[in-house]
Design a protein around this nucleic acid. Sequence first.
DNA 1: CTAAAATTGATCGATATATTCCGTTTATAG
DNA 2: CTATAAACGGAATATATCGATCAATTTTAG
Lengths: 156, 156
Amino acid sequence: MKQERQLDEVDRRILSALQVDGSISHQDLAERVGASSASCWRRIKALEAAGILTGTVRLVDPAQVGRGVNVLCNIRMRSHALDARSAFERFVDDRPEIVECFSMSGEWDYLMRVVVADVADYNRFLMQILLGHASVAGAASHFALSMTKYTTAIPL
Amino acid sequence: MKQERQLDEVDRRILSALQVDGSISHQDLAERVGASSASCWRRIKALEAAGILTGTVRLVDPAQVGRGVNVLCNIRMRSHALDARSAFERFVDDRPEIVECFSMSGEWDYLMRVVVADVADYNRFLMQILLGHASVAGAASHFALSMTKYTTAIPL
DNA sequence: CTAAAATTGATCGATATATTCCGTTTATAG
DNA sequence: CTATAAACGGAATATATCGATCAATTTTAG
């Protein structure tokens, strides 16, 4: 929660570059941000130690592996008790097709993004998996026609 | 769109591992998936060439850089003409605080996720940036209380 | 069942990259 | 202004990767 470290311009440039291309060499990164590669390396280690810079991940094209359809799904819970919520959140964590989930203010309790192959696949997920869960009182599903933008980069 | 390559079990294990940790060495990856490092290397190159395995990115903790608040925002367009849509999508692409945007079926035209520092920051974005756009007829914003799950990994 | 084709694991330099070391510069505090 | 600490760049070293080769194994096709 707390902001440990005040980022300077070079830190921001390093983070911006790595958020877009995590495989760039320290040498190339150094040229890009205007510092030496040793300095870049030290800053990266410090940013990692501070928990600002976290994992390195490789991305997979969802459409190419049969997960081209995004469904945004609002959930209403049967109970708002702590154990019901934590049971549901554990369930969400266990289901790999749920890639994002937010606890929401407003009329719905959760909003989740689900990646599926097609409508039939989502039907199966909704009927057999989601609505089968004891904590779920109701759901409203909205199919994405297309993904206009998707980035993992947080603005700095 | 097309699924070029039929993935076998080893491919899936490679992709699963790299989606979680993109910095693992070929040697360690080889042990993990039960193949030689040379074979892993060849498979990775093939998966990249097929467009299945795409970029490498490093992740940044949003809260640590003052972007701890997620707002999910539905948009209704003034016009559905092609040029209005492409102008809007270009706008979305240019705004770094909009990290995801989906063209939607149903009553709203778009759903986007916006990362901001706080409520005041979102107010500024909504009033001055989003509602200032010529194509936008209306918006409904929903604040996330917390992010329960977030993964970049597509299930295989 | 057999022959051809593809894939595999092992190994090897050449190259590129990561990481440490060290002397110098810059920033901080008294 | 000076002493101390922190951060710096450049160079040296340690590792990892790249890409090829080759014989053995597996898969595919007829």
